[in-house]
Write a protein that binds this DNA or RNA. Structure first.
Length: 253
DNA sequence: GTTGAGCGTT
């Protein structure tokens, strides 16, 4: 049976922890178990997951019983392609409680010691937890995308100025127009998210509460439909387009 | 459905 990660840490004082990075987001402990078990006795495998989405973060922890097995696993599984991705296997530098570990083995206990290598205390779980997650996620998913987009736009602008007009702008515009004239949308995110709530301040990265309640972001789409069980006696034939115009006009086009 | 630097939980 492989119930790694389901329960708490069994025992890490007598095991060697390996950090597996660069694994796919769909790789589970059950997938890593046969790979690591071939090179030694795997005591436990744990894959940190996001508490919001519940998906893997892209790395896992594999605990071996002996150091030689762990070393062998590192030497053999480091760079191994799993699920189409190269995973990096190395010894863990920090323990679950920020204790310093050498070669996957804990050399310094955290019992009674406050402010370890990373100054992490088990008492501040919630705030630092979410903050840490948000912080580390921003640089991997959002920031990177933003920077990439900005860089791309800048590059395009640079090309636009340098080459005056050669291929880029006209081609892009033509392609967009030739593709679909009526379905022209500036951004695919604004269309579904909130067109009236888009903030003109790009310096603000993002609001954390946006992920907390995504349903409340667009309540006017489903609420009025379900909250009005009898629209015939309450509201007149509502037209989607003229819902905001108080003056009904006969001319349509 | 997506993403890619890093160090962990019943």
């Amino acid at each position: 049976m492989s119930h790694f990660g389901r329960t708490g840490p069994p025992d890490i004082s007598d095991t060697y922890s390996l950090l597996v990075l660069n694994i796919t987001f769909r790789t589970t402990a059950d997938d890593l178990f046969p790979l690591f078990d071939k090179y030694g006795n795997v005591v436990d495998i744990f894959i940190p997951r996001d508490r919001r989405t519940g998906e893997s973060r892209g790395f896992a922890f594999v605990r071996y019983k002996y150091a030689d097995e762990a070393q062998k696993a590192v030497d053999r599984l480091d760079g191994r392609v799993v699920d189409g991705r190269e995973m990096a296997v190395q010894f863990a530098k920090y323990g679950p409680n920020a204790e310093r570990i050498h070669q996957g083995r804990i050399i310094e206990k955290v019992s009674g010691v406050k402010g370890s290598s990373r100054s992490r205390s088990p008492r501040r779980y919630r705030d630092d937890y979410h903050r840490d997650r948000e912080y580390r996620r921003s640089r991997s998913r959002s920031v990177d995308r933003y920077e990439r987009d900005r860089y791309r736009r800048r590059e395009r602008d640079s090309s636009y100025r340098s080459r005056s007009r050669s291929i880029s702008p006209d081609y892009d515009r033509d392609r967009c127009r030739g593709r679909d004239k009526k379905h022209q949308r500036r951004s695919p995110s604004y269309d579904s998210a909130s067109p009236a709530r888009r903030s003109p301040s790009p310096h603000k990265i993002e609001s954390p509460r946006r992920s907390l309640s995504p349903k409340k972001g667009t309540p006017d789409r489903h609420i009025p439909n379900e909250r009005s069980p009898s629209p015939r006696s309450r509201s007149p034939p509502v037209r989607a387009m003229d819902s905001r115009s108080p003056s009904p006009r006969a001319d349509e086009e």
